[in-house]
Computed example of a mutant assay.
Amino acid sequence: MRMEGKVCIVTGGARGLGKAMVEKFAKEGAKVVYACDLNEEALKDLEKEYSNVKGYVLNVTDRKAIEEFKNKVMEEEGHVDVLVNNAGITRDALIQKMSEEDWDIVIDVNLKGVFNMTQFFAPEMMKAGKGAIVNISSVVGIYGNVGQTNYAATKGGVIAMTKTWAKEFARKGAQVRVNAVAPGFIKTPMTEVVPQKVIDYVVSKTPLGKMGDPEDIANAVCFLASDEAKFITGQVLGVDGGLIL
């Protein structure tokens, strides 16, 4: 039970990759997993299925709401062991057609949202002297992708923040680790809207010849969040079937 007794937070935890992470942590013995999302009904379903999951409606762009959530967690549990910054959206378009609104909202959720959550919870981990933060990036943040200027910028930024925080949060001896996972093409609601010809092309370029499953990402996140990875920080783990080699 790799997460036994741990207090965990997963943003974007109601479906797709986030749901898989919440379920993995719950099954691995976490004391409590706070699943944060805007989908209240899906959160209720998770609570019904797992006694150690608590759903919390939270917008990662709302700093006041995040502060209230942090206060609630600290009041209930007194500490946080794991934070997974997973919440993310896409608004794809070629740069000639990308609206300022689509640029701003992707930056706000995918980049500033990660900053917001970390700024509120990392200091609590540092006070406790330990903790693990796992940020969800993407292979797009490493090699780019046509039509995803905004998304690629955020995921590249997440990698840069991960490496910065790995140095910053351990400066005074605290065992606070920060790592990132960079998924390739995974079967999620987000990729369901991708044209089949695009999926077929990417799969053809993937050495393992298939798309990944949400559980593949959840397993990687669980490892980095667990004590098994206690000497790993500042790293980006690609889970992409070999797409980037």
Results as ranks from 00 to 15, higher is better:
residue 148 Q to D: 00
residue 205 K to A: 07
residue 31 K to A: 01
residue 157 G to K: 01
residue 155 K to G: 01
residue 217 I to S: 03
residue 2 R to P: 03
residue 75 E to R: 15
residue 244 I to E: 04
residue 39 N to K: 07
residue 233 T to I: 03
residue 74 M to F: 03
residue 165 W to S: 05
residue 205 K to M: 12
residue 245 L to Q: 10
residue 11 T to C: 11
residue 3 M to F: 12
residue 113 G to Q: 02
residue 241 G to R: 10
residue 150 N to Q: 15
residue 129 G to T: 04
residue 31 K to P: 02
residue 230 K to D: 02
residue 94 L to R: 10
residue 28 E to Q: 13
residue 183 P to N: 01
residue 68 E to A: 13
residue 242 G to A: 13
residue 194 V to Q: 08
residue 85 N to Q: 14
residue 240 D to G: 08
residue 174 A to T: 03
residue 156 G to D: 11
residue 128 A to W: 06
residue 167 K to R: 15
residue 13 G to S: 09
residue 166 A to G: 07
residue 74 M to D: 06
residue 165 W to I: 06
residue 177 R to P: 04
residue 241 G to I: 06
residue 111 L to A: 08
residue 34 Y to M: 05
residue 237 L to R: 09
residue 56 Y to D: 03
residue 148 Q to C: 01
residue 206 T to G: 15
residue 80 V to C: 07
residue 95 I to S: 12
residue 145 N to G: 07
residue 45 D to T: 15
residue 144 G to F: 07
residue 130 K to D: 10
residue 218 A to V: 12
residue 1 M to E: 09
residue 37 D to Q: 12
residue 105 I to C: 09
residue 168 E to H: 00
residue 157 G to I: 04
residue 39 N to C: 12
residue 82 V to C: 03
residue 24 K to N: 09
residue 6 K to T: 04
residue 222 C to I: 08
residue 82 V to P: 05
residue 170 A to S: 15
residue 67 E to R: 10
residue 125 M to Q: 04
residue 231 F to T: 11
residue 38 L to E: 06
residue 52 N to S: 09
residue 111 L to P: 06
residue 175 Q to S: 11
residue 130 K to C: 14
residue 141 G to I: 15
residue 31 K to F: 03
residue 231 F to S: 01
residue 51 S to L: 12
residue 15 R to T: 07
residue 134 V to N: 02
residue 187 K to P: 00
residue 47 E to G: 09
residue 143 Y to S: 11
residue 35 A to I: 12
residue 135 N to A: 03
